[in-house]
């Protein structure tokens, strides 16, 4: 591969990832508003573009044109860097997700591990945002976010291990291949439930949206951010929703496996179905309290995940060398 080819590939990959991140966020915000409207006996955006499809575009353009306020009391460097660091993992994560066999920016052989590792960078951005804002709500929100995400990482990892155990690989395409006959959701229902709950908690959505609990913390860690800085947090959140749903699809729902339709279509169908469920939950449930959230994690999810890992290793790998 020549240098030129590498550069061209890089540019294409870069462009594809960023375009996807932006378009996906625009679409998801629109979808969120439409889904919430459906649940709430409303219409949602209708006036801006056909069926309000241009609504989120208008929002995005507006946010670009807003004044960027840097309050006097903030820690300027950190305040400036925080949204960028929070947004950074979003394209990195999207880049590691294969859409179909051989389609996608990359299909790492440690894909599952990579996802877990990179997604935590966003947490750093959140912490920086909360600390640098010099706002008590932001600080509380960041504290909650860090505590919650780190805690939920553990059962998430453990349930992920059960899948890796089944597939014998951390590569997403291998994991999908292992589900050609039966998707793992049937073989590993407990892991699926735990992973799904954890991924909702990781993306800070209801009923685990305590880091940005609107009725308590105004807007949580991004209270002080305006315009595009706020939009970056928004982008990051919706990309994370997509990534987590995509991973649920890849790990449990058989990825792009499916009859008749092309694999990529299956992948997106399943992913957006998961996203729909995530939104459905958000618009139905109230929010947990932070200590209840922790209790639920450490007293319920974690033991369940460990047990599940133990049992599945005995059932699927018991007595036989890997």
């Amino acid at each position: 591969m020549s240098i030129v080819e590498i550069i061209i590939r890089l540019i294409i990959a870069f462009g594809a990832v960023f375009t996807f991140v932006a378009l996906n966020a625009l679409f998801l915000v629109w979808l969120e508003r439409k889904v919430s409207a459906l649940i709430q006996q409303r219409l949602g955006p209708t006036e801006v573009g056909p069926a309000g499809l241009l609504q989120t575009l208008a929002d995005a353009v507006k946010l670009m044109g807003k004044e960027l306020i840097t309050p006097t009391a903030v820690s300027r460097t950190v305040f400036f860097l925080a949204p960028i660091i929070a947004f950074l993992p979003a394209p990195l994560l999207v880049a590691a997700i294969p859409i179909a066999k051989g389609v996608g920016v990359s299909d790492l052989n440690v894909g599952a591990l990579y996802i877990l590792a990179i997604s935590n960078i966003a947490l750093l951005g959140i912490l920086m945002a909360g600390w640098s804002s010099n706002n008590k709500y932001s600080l509380l929100g960041a504290m909650r976010a860090v505590a919650q995400n780190i805690s939920y990482e553990i059962p998430m990892l453990l349930s992920l291990l059960a899948i890796i155990l089944m597939a014998g690989s951390m590569k997403f395409s291998d994991i999908v291949k292992a589900q050609e006959t039966v998707p793992f959701v049937l073989l590993q229902p407990v892991a699926f439930i735990i992973y799904f709950i954890c991924s909702i908690a990781e993306s800070n959505r209801t009923p685990f949206d305590i880091p940005e609990a609107e009725s308590e913390l105004v807007a949580g860690y991004h209270t002080e951010f305006t315009g595009m800085r706020f939009a970056l947090f928004f982008l990051a959140e919706y990309t994370q929703v997509f990534v987590l749903s995509a991973i649920v699809t890849l790990l449990f729902l058989g990825g792009w496996n499916g009859p008749l339709l092309p694999p990529a279509v299956w992948f997106f169908l399943k992913t957006y179905l998961v996203i729909f469920v995530v939104m459905w939950l958000r618009w139905t449930y109230p929010r947990l309290r932070s200590d209840q959230l922790m209790n639920f994690n450490w007293k319920m999810l974690l033991p369940a995940a460990i047990l599940n890992l133990l049992i599945s290793s005995v059932i699927y790998r018991g007595g036989f060398p890997g």
């Binding site: 508003r33 409303r42 955006p45 609504q55 929002d59 807007a219």
Partner: peptide, 23 residues
């Protein structure tokens, strides 16, 4: 902003709690 009148139709339904994000 509730169901019957729904200002969200006109893009004015996203109530922001923080003045930093409101127009």
């Amino acid at each position: 902003s509730a169901s019957r009148y729904d200002t969200d139709r006109f893009g004015a339904g996203v109530f922001r709690n923080s003045p930093r994000q409101a127009d």
